[in-house]
Design a protein around this nucleic acid. Structure first.
Lengths: 221, 221
DNA sequence: TGAGTGCTGTGATTAAATTCACTGTGTAAG
DNA sequence: CTTACACAGTGAATTTAATCACAGCACTCA
């Protein structure tokens, strides 16, 4: 392999987040049978500047045709490869409460290359039952199920109590990635990743933004 | 008002996002009856550098006691004021599907100053029923309910089809903030805000991160 | 009372992300 | 074939975010 291969270069996390957005729009476009698209068109559709879009794509050595633009299908496929969703990945879900069940019945995961292979809960009433086609395992079976089903990512939707312990067990079983819906800070060793989805924090951001604008209009008067 | 009041200065959005995190931790600390905390302690708890924490707090003119640190309760209150959650805000929910119901039964909102005052759905079977204590209105009633209940923020958890139209109606009714769970890009006029929660995108980020690390360890061997 | 300590708040610096602006090229039209 | 055009890719410049590092202060303890 060439030592200066583009893929060896560090891709910024900001770029990766935008790649997800690009890819989703590209799939919509592909469904509408668009074959090629120019940077400024796609940029307008997803709300970034054309220069940024080109930079993002260039960061992994994309080659768009100058006259026609970027090949929609090909770019979508390339992004999948970068992200690692070109093949299906198994995901585990911890906590089959309201949120957990909502996640189980969400069909968007499969479309994007993620399959919830197993659900876990402590509640004996839930263990053994089937939710949205997935059997609920006892948390005691966590380690074995993770290994058997080759689960790479754990989605956390349980109660805050004892969550850190579950994470530790996951780490010990080789899980490196956690998607955390629980409003609680978790600690993981170096090389593991926690993505936190904090719905209230998003609301707070919105609250701040609209308040800030209120203040500004008041001053402007 | 002094023209150079700290509050007039632009606070970065990155800072606002971190303020949410600080505040959550401060409330935990407050529950544990911690009265004062130093920047390096809190910074360690939430995973930022002490310098950044101090900068964030200084951006709105916080005054921590040098010897004791920051007053936990006071800082928490100040952040609430900045964000605008010092008084309860009414929120509307569009779409009472699996996700919508999960959001309705999530108790975290109230704790953080947000009250889901109304739910809306197109499905006649759902209209009129009560979910988690909240009555489900017909979408036809959207405008009147938004005004009557003084709703400032709309949470979108409906189907992608027709969503833009709902947003447009919300904007016309004076809503400026939207929290969007639907994997679809929305357009709003200047001065309105859409926060997008894209669960799959978070999973994709995790997928990228662990893949990146795989590559690195392979190279390192 | 006065020296010592360790903190906050902040100017200065560094690093990162974004945008600007231009070069070279593929395509299409004349 | 030639010319004109519009765009991708990318160094350079700019803007934004994060970190460093220190002045000055509140408290402690001798």
């Amino acid at each position: 392999m060439a030592p200066t291969d583009k893929k060896d270069q560090k891709v910024s996390l900001h770029t990766v987040e935008r790649l997800s957005v690009y890819r989703r729009k590209l799939e919509e476009l592909s469904a509408d049978e668009v074959e090629y698209i120019h940077s400024h068109q796609l940029a307008a559709l997803v709300g970034v500047t054309p220069a940024q879009l080109r930079r993002d794509l260039a960061s992994f050595g994309s080659y768009g045709n100058i006259a026609r633009g970027y090949g929609v299908k090909q770019m979508s496929r390339t992004i999948s490869q970068i992200i690692g969703t070109d093949s299906m990945q198994n995901v585990g879900l911890v906590g089959v409460g309201d949120l957990g069940r909502a996640l189980l019945s969400y069909r968007g995961f499969e479309e994007r290359g993620f399959h919830i292979a197993a659900a876990f809960d402590v509640d004996p009433d839930k263990v053994g039952r089937v939710f949205a086609g997935r059997r609920c395992y006892s948390l005691d079976k966590l380690e074995t199920a993770l290994v058997d089903l080759q689960i790479r990512i754990l989605v956390l939707a349980a109660r805050p109590e004892g969550l850190q312990e579950i994470v530790d067990r996951g780490v010990a079983a080789g899980i490196r990635s956690f998607l955390n819906f629980v409003p609680k800070t978790l600690t993981v060793p170096e090389g593991c990743f926690v993505e936190h989805i904090d719905i209230s924090a998003k609301l707070e951001k919105l609250s701040f933004l609209s308040r800030q604008q209120n203040d500004r209009t008041e001053v402007a008067e």
